[in-house]
Design a protein around this nucleic acid. Structure first.
Length: 572
RNA sequence: GGGCUUGUAGUUCAAUGGAUAGAAUAAAGAGGUUCGGUCUCUUCGAUUCCGGUUCGAAUCCGGACAAGCUCACCA
């Protein structure tokens, strides 16, 4: 909470650049070592010669041991200690700062609803994520991508950026032809529906029938040609209609997941541009013909061969993605671009980025790709009707039923409608939380029973903590004046945690890491529950102050969960 | 075989190059019945291996081993 002040003190005493101090300063492993700590080892070896060190009296620090340096800094800082800092201590090579608990308490109980909002950046960022294909399943991987995209978007917004959410969908190609072929031949009597599982089911059926009888492939190819040339009226309109239904089915999903997109790109819109850019690259000598296909040879860079155009001249995903990159970059209003996909596309995106390098694409250094790990399920723990990939709807429903069971057990008097509503919210937030609390690039082994627990590091635990805090606040009608008397360790621990929130948010934004925020939310709730367990709020002498503290916790947790895309429930 | 990523308690995850590697869960034991006990406490238990850099390495570098992804006309 008073981090900036402390950084200023160190900067002043050591003459190190603010950014360098900010980089080095840390939170000690335990509270009795203070609230912030500055390790002085760096100063003992001032060999760096950049601007961070420009004003440092290097000769003075040189070869002094860190303890001496820390003592020296302490002497300077102690002379003008601001009232927010209670004291400074030297321990080994560390300079430890203790903030004044009463000042901390004053700040904590006065935090507002916007607590945690900071302005450290001011860019217009386009986040591309989710990217389902029409006529295909929206599966668990898409849920992870969507949750990540939404959460990172919110975190970036929270530190001052404007975020434009973009989606990108494949709406052409062989998979569409398969779908249309299968529908026309085997499902024509069924009504076209915007039900995600029905749409995905047709595709799965198509794949199955095609593998049963290879002779069918010719029919599919025929349809694919008709789609591309737009020559067949019936197929054209079916393509359009079914595509719209896919989009409609996603919109239902996005509403449940709490995401809305500002811009939706489709592959079919980028064919022309893709072709054009491929030709350009050929002219410039960046791309070349090989085996009749147009490729970019990236073997020099250890990235293999990247094919832009098929040997028959048709456009591949790669060329379209280049066209998309150019379209985004040409938009003068955008400063930064982030694309989130599954990590199976990492190699592909490295090829794309390298090609942008070779093209000298402007704003290239602002074009980023983030790959996330797959979701794996413990063997035999979840069922799937459609093979390997579990559909969104199946996944959600299975978890919702688990939530419903535990809700009915806990609150038997709720109406069916209410149970349904709450169980859906709990299921969605459990999924999101389980997906976001882990490092983005790591594979997740999703155990639904573990994710749905009301204890441990789970979504329901956090929501439960929130609801509890909420209920305390509602129950008390005390209007007593707030008096800060002697503070207990648990109160201090809770205040301390709450005070860290802004730092956590900034770090999350810098590293595109919802997991940092998620783990913070968990630690925060844990500290709160410890406090709550042993400190009576209502009826106690410190009631007014403790209510304020509970309220500060409530606001902080709410904002942290918001950044994860998780909606709090006032009661559970 | 090449490239990328990852190897931390039985299991699932944490730890800006910093101080005693934290949790959850499982297991064993003890207490507790509520401002919303699905609670609390105790015990048990880990950095894959071998080198290197550093005042300091789970973290950086090299190598071995293992897993995942990926390597020309799918997206």
């Amino acid at each position: 909470m008073f981090k900036q002040k402390i950084i200023g003190l160190i900067e002043n005493a050591s003459k190190l650049h603010e950014d360098e101090v900010n980089r080095v300063i840390e939170v000690p492993p335990s509270l009795n070592m203070g609230d912030y700590s500055f390790p002085c080892f760096v100063l003992a070896d001032p060999k760096k010669d950049d601007e961070m060190w420009a004003n440092v009296e290097k000769d003075f620090f040189k070869r002094k041991n860190p303890f001496e340096i820390a003592s020296h800094l302490k002497d300077i800082i102690e002379k003008k200690l601001p009232k927010e800092i209670e004291r400074v201590e030297v321990k080994g090579g560390y300079l430890n700062f203790f903030v004044d608990k009463n000042k901390l308490a004053e700040s904590i109980i006065n935090i507002g609803n916007n607590y945690g909002k900071v302005k450290v950046s001011n860019e217009r960022v386009m986040m591309e994520f989710s990217q389902p294909n029409t006529h295909k399943a929206f599966h668990v991987g898409h849920i992870r991508g969507t949750s990540l995209g939404e959460s990172i978007s919110r975190i970036l917004e929270n530190v001052g950026n404007k975020v434009i959410r973009a989606n990108y969908s494949g709406d052409t190609g062989m998979h569409i032809a398969k779908w249309i072929w299968c529908y026309l031949n085997f499902h024509k009597k069924e009504k076209l529906s915007d039900d995600e599982s029905w749409i995905a089911g047709i595709y799965v059926d198509a794949v199955k029938r095609l593998s049963d009888d290879e002779g069918y492939q010719d029919q599919v190819n025929e349809i694919n040609r008709k789609i591309e040339s737009k020559s067949d009226k019936e197929i054209n309109s079916l393509w359009k209609k079914s595509k719209d239904l896919s989009v409609k089915s996603w919109n239902k999903i996005y509403e449940e997941l709490g995401t809305r997109f500002d811009r939706h790109y489709f592959e079919s819109e980028l064919e022309e541009g893709g072709k054009r850019i491929a030709k350009e690259l050929e002219k410039k000598g960046i791309a070349e013909i090989s085996d009749e296909a147009l490729i970019v040879n990236l073997e020099k860079h250890g990235l293999g061969i990247w094919v832009l155009l098929r040997s028959d001249g048709t456009v591949l995903y790669s060329a379209k993605d280049l066209a998309l990159a150019r379209e985004k970059i040409d938009n003068q209003k955008l400063d930064r671009f982030v694309i989130i996909t599954g990590d199976e596309q990492n190699a592909y995106f490295n090829q794309l980025l390298k090609t942008l390098d070779l093209m000298d694409m402007p704003k290239r250094d602002k074009y980023h790709h983030i790959g996330f790990g797959m979701i794996r399920l413990p063997h035999g723990k979840m069922s799937s009707r459609t093979g390997d990939n579990i559909l969104y709807s199946e996944f959600k429903e299975e978890l919702r039923e688990v939530a419903e069971k535990s809700i009915r057990g806990k609150w038997p008097k709720l109406s069916n409608k209410e149970v349904e509503k709450r169980s859906l919210k709990i299921a969605i937030s459990s999924i999101k939380y389980a997906f976001l609390k882990q490092d983005t690039n790591k594979l997740i082994v999703f155990d639904k029973d573990q994710a749905m627990r009301f204890e441990g590091n789970t979504g329901p635990y956090l929501q439960y903590s929130y609801a509890r805090a909420n209920s305390i606040l509602e129950k008390s009608k005390s209007k007593k004046k707030v008096m800060i008397s002697e503070l207990s360790d648990l109160e201090i621990g809770l205040m301390n945690k709450i005070g860290r929130f802004p730092e956590v948010v900034v770090k999350g934004a810098e590293t595109y890491s919802p997991s940092i925020v998620a783990n913070y939310a968990y630690e925060l709730s844990k500290v709160f529950n410890e406090f709550y367990h042993s400190s009576k709020v209502i009826g106690s002498k410190e009631e007014a102050f403790r209510l304020k503290l509970v309220d500060a916790f409530r606001k902080t947790l709410k904002n942290a969960l918001y950044l994860l895309g998780i909606e709090v429930m006032e009661e559970m």
